[in-house]
Design a protein around this nucleic acid. Structure first.
Lengths: 199, 199
DNA sequence: ACCTGAACACCGTTCAAGT
DNA sequence: ACCTGAACACCGTTCAAGT
C-alpha cells in the first residue's frame, strides 16, 4: 500500500495493456476506465491524466491495433517467395488477426473512431500503404487507377472474410478456403493482371 | 398525462422503432433503455416487460435488420434482367443498406450477438439463402461445393466493401466502382463460372 | 399480463486539492 | 506533471406493488 510511489511512472502503458486483455476477453462493453484504474492499482480519476475520456482510450487502442497489424503484414511480406504465396500469407495473417482480436478489429473499423481521431486515420493509411507496396512498383502508364482499385478490392475481401468469420456466421474452419477462393478470383481477374507488376 | 391508458398496448413496437432511429443517429452507445422508455412515455422499468435486458433489445434489432435486408435483396432480384445486372443490383443494395444503417449492420455482425440469439442466427441464414437462390438451381454434379463457396465469397466481398465504406476508410463515392470491380473479378473467375448455373 | 417507482451497484466525467 | 477522492448525473437490473 504505502510502498507504491505516488507517480506510477508507467500508468499509460499499463492501462493500454490491461485494456487489450480485457478487450479480448469481454469485448468493448467490458471496458471501463474505473475497472482499468482498479487493475492498475490507482484511483479512478488517474486515467484522466493520460486519456481525456473513454473514447480517447478507444482511439489509442485502435491506433495500436493498426500499427500491430501493419507489422504483421510486413512480416508476412518479408519471406522470399513467389508473389502468389506472399499474397496468401498476407491474407491469412490479416484474417487471423481479425479473428483473434475481433473486438479490437471492430474498434479499428468503426465510423465513430474514424471520425474522431486523426492519428488513427494515419495508422490506417500506413496499413493500406503497406498492402499497396506488396504489389511491386506501380505502372505509370496505367490510367485506370488499377493499382489503387486492386488494393481496395484486396482489403475489402479480407475485411469481409474476417467479419463473417469473426461474427461466427461462417465457421473458422472455412476461412482458409475462402481466402484462397478470394485470392484466386482477384489475381486471375483483368484488374489483378493490370495492378500487379511484380513477378 | 392522465388520459394515457395504463397498458400502452403498442410499447414493444414503439421501443423498436425509436431504437432504430436512435441507432442511426447516435450509434449503439447512444442506445439506453431508460432513454427509450422516456421517449415512449413510460416508466424506466416498463421495457423489461418486452425485453429481458439491453442485449435482448439489441438482438431484436439485429433480427429485424436481417429481415429488412433480406426483403431488400429479394426486391433487387425481382427485376427481369440479365444475370449480371441482377448481381450488381443486389450488391449495390447490400452496400447501400450497410452504409445507411452502419450501426445496425455492426449489431448484425457482432460476435456477441451471434452467440447470444438463435433467432438472429436464423434470420441471418435466411439472408444467405436468398443470396444463394439468386444464382439459379445448383449443379448436382459439382463435387467441390462451388455453389456454397461462391455465396460466401459474394457475401464476404459485399460485407468487406460495406465495412470499409461505412467506417469512412474508403470514400462513399468509390463504393460503386469497388462493387463493380468485385463483381467482375468474382463472376469471371473459375469458381464463378462453376457456381452460377442460371443464364 | 403489463406497468410503476424505489432501490442498488456501477459507470463516465468534473474538479478542487494534494505531492 | 501526475494522482487522489468527493461529487454529480446517468445507466442497467431487480423487485415488490399496483391495475
Amino acid at each position: 500500500m504505502t510502498d507504491r510511489p505516488f507517480h506510477h511512472g508507467n500508468l499509460r502503458a499499463v492501462l493500454l495493456e490491461e485494456a487489450e486483455a480485457v478487450l479480448r476477453q469481454d469485448g468493448v462493453d467490458g471496458l471501463s476506465l474505473r475497472d482499468l484504474a482498479r487493475r492498475a492499482g490507482v484511483s479512478h480519476g488517474a486515467p484522466r491524466s493520460h486519456f481525456a475520456d473513454r473514447q480517447a482510450l478507444l482511439d489509442a487502442l485502435a491506433e495500436r491495433g493498426f500499427a500491430r497489424l501493419t507489422t504483421t503484414v510486413q512480416r508476412a511480406l518479408a519471406h522470399d517467395e513467389p508473389l502468389r504465396a506472399q499474397f496468401d500469407r498476407v491474407a491469412h495473417a490479416y484474417v487471423d488477426f481479425a479473428v483473434d482480436d475481433a473486438a479490437l478489429m471492430e474498434l479499428m473499423f468503426q465510423a465513430k473512431t474514424a471520425a474522431a481521431s486523426a492519428a488513427v486515420g494515419e495508422a490506417a493509411t500506413r496499413l493500406f500503404g503497406t498492402l499497396d507496396a506488396a504489389m511491386g512498383p506501380a505502372d505509370p502508364d496505367d490510367g485506370t487507377g488499377a493499382r489503387e482499385r486492386f488494393t481496395l478490392l484486396f482489403a475489402a475481401s479480407m475485411q469481409g472474410i474476417a467479419a463473417l468469420v469473426a461474427s461466427g456466421r461462417v465457421p473458422r474452419a472455412r476461412a482458409d478456403a475462402l481466402v484462397d477462393d478470394a485470392m484466386e478470383a482477384m489475381l486471375t481477374s483483368d484488374l489483378g493482371a493490370r495492378a500487379v507488376t511484380r513477378h
